[in-house]
């Protein structure tokens, strides 16, 4: 485990030394956070921006004030994993893009798969944050099962944090190992 953490530290330093990757990670994290907090009210935001004749400042004020929902419409647990998911998603997406740029396609593909699982699980977890959101929606057939879970669906958010963390560790290792040369069994030096 400490080997993975060492590789992750190295990879983070390497990737985020480039301001462009840092900015990209920030944009993805912010986008994920905004989507999570606004998710229950996307229809309202559309209505306010399209259907109202109020000044743009007032419309933006409503959208911004809805972000306060992270404190009032989320439990402490769900707010915590929502922020964690956004940060992890931003960091791992930027690092996967770095891998793609380095043409490490096989490693990138593996990490995209793990990261996507994390993001999908996170979406379900976030949906369950409010009382019954999703329970009466698309996941209606699973409503009973979700409600029966000890944390009423927050398990998906926690699973998402675990999967995205795993994705980050894997992508960190891929980046760190791509930067080092190791001895092949035959004894010849080769790039891994």
């Amino acid at each position: 485990m400490s080997g993975y953490l060492k590789d992750l530290r190295f990879a983070l330093a390497r990737v985020f030394a480039f301001p462009a990757y840092l900015a990209f990670a920030g944009v993805v994290a912010l986008g994920a956070f905004l989507l999570a907090v606004w998710f229950p009210n996307l229809g309202l935001i559309a209505e306010v921006f399209r259907g109202s004749q109020a000044p743009l400042g007032a419309k933006l004020g409503i959208a911004v004030s809805l972000l306060g929902g992270i404190a009032t419409n989320f439990s402490l647990l769900s707010a915590g994993y929502t922020v964690a998911i956004a940060v992890l998603l931003g960091a791992s997406t930027a690092m996967i893009v770095y891998l793609l740029q380095q043409r490490r396609l096989a490693s990138a593909g593996r990490n995209i798969a793990v990261g996507s699982g994390g993001a999908a699980s996170g979406a379900l977890g976030i949906g369950c944050a409010a009382c019954g959101s999703l329970v009466l929606g698309a996941a209606a057939p699973f409503a009973g099962a979700l409600a029966a879970l000890p944390l009423a669906g927050a398990e998906f958010g926690i699973a998402s944090v675990v999967l995205l963390s795993a994705s980050l560790l894997l992508v960190g290792r891929s980046i760190a190992r791509a930067s080092a040369c190791s001895l092949a069994p035959s004894g010849s030096t080769q790039q891994r």
């Binding site: 009210n41 309202l44 209505e47 004030s65 929902g69 009032t72 419409n73 409010a130």
Partner: peptide, 11 residues
């Protein structure tokens, strides 16, 4: 205007 959830006073 449909409003979902326990949104803050300001909103």
């Amino acid at each position: 205007y449909p409003l979902s959830g326990a949104q803050p006073y300001a909103a």
